[in-house]
């Protein structure tokens, strides 16, 4: 299991990197960040990029910064760096919590937050977090820079709105004043989740004022659970309201059955995980007050 041959460059600027993607488009040029998804695919010979553009030498891409109240993570921010970052814990505690579920520390030491989002594995944690947080992805291509909202970014399994000559340079995470929870059900520790739920719940005067919930493992992309959010809106987050939100959130789901579970089992698990996530986020929202 060795990767196929490719050519390689590690440019010093984003424009240079984009130029390389354009120049080598016919060779199926791809961007390399941590490589924790791409290199295994190449080892399996399921990916045959003819050219890899490594972002490791581009200065600044490993920065974690605040742009006003928006947390911005560059394309080379390793998952473990984000996990340890005080800024991330304060500005995006949901992301911090989810990072603890991403594979294992040795993978997180190499893998990047943005790379995982760009890879768009429907079972992965970080795309789900991006969707729940209404993240924006900054893409730079030959035509310049654009921002893609998470709701438009994930288009299918391993398929995103990113063009093949664009580079995802950063993810922008707006603030959420409220409680958070990331809960997942995985067969074994560090394994891909069967179902994962990212939940944000804001509570004022005992009632839910805003909820943002997304789930992995219940569709071809992470799924925003709008019906559950609406069911919670204005409610006292007690067990009845949460139960109603779970019913609403899982009512229309039609997950594909696979090795890890039939559609029915995935929904069963999604119900339990969704309930736990809302409960915990709501509790934390109360605590914040």
């Amino acid at each position: 299991m060795k990767p196929p041959s490719f050519r390689y460059s590690s440019p010093a600027t984003v424009p240079d990197a984009v130029a390389l993607l354009v120049e080598h488009a016919e060779e199926d040029a791809r961007v390399l960040a941590g490589g924790q998804s791409l290199v295994p695919l190449m080892n399996f010979r399921l990916a045959h990029p003819g050219f890899l553009v490594d972002l490791r030498r581009v200065p600044g891409l490993d920065s974690i910064r605040m742009d006003g109240d928006v947390l911005v993570l560059g394309a080379m921010v390793r998952q473990s760096a984000a996990e340890r970052s005080a800024e991330v814990r304060v500005a995006a505690p949901l992301l911090a919590e989810a990072l603890g579920h991403v594979a294992h520390p040795p993978i997180r030491n190499s893998g990047t937050v943005v790379g995982s989002i760009a890879h768009a594995d429907p079972a992965a944690e970080l795309p789900t977090v991006a969707l729940a947080m209404d993240a924006e992805m900054t893409a730079v291509g030959p035509q310049g820079e654009r921002r893609i909202p998470a709701a438009e970014f994930f288009q299918g399994p391993f398929t995103t709105a990113l063009a093949s000559d664009e580079i995802l340079t950063e993810v922008r995470l707006p603030p959420f004043a409220g409680g958070h929870a990331f809960v997942e059900f995985a067969r074994t520790h560090g394994n891909f989740a069967v179902v994962g739920v990212a939940a944000l719940v804001a509570v004022t005067d005992g009632r839910v004022t805003r909820a943002a919930i997304a789930a992995s493992g219940v569709g071809p992309t992470p799924v925003r659970m709008t019906a559950a959010e609406e069911a919670l809106g204005g409610a006292v987050p007690d067990s009845a309201a949460i139960g109603a939100a779970v019913d609403a959130g899982t009512a229309g789901l039609q997950p594909a059955g696979d090795l890890q579970g039939s559609a029915a089992t995935r929904i069963d698990i999604a119900r339990a995980v969704l309930r736990d996530a809302i409960e915990r986020a709501a509790e934390r929202a109360q605590d914040r007050r």
Partner: peptide, 16 residues
Amino acid sequence: LLDGASIRSCITLAVQ
């Protein structure tokens, strides 16, 4: 250990 951090050397390119 790469710069003190554990990594999987089977899914890391030497150029990285």
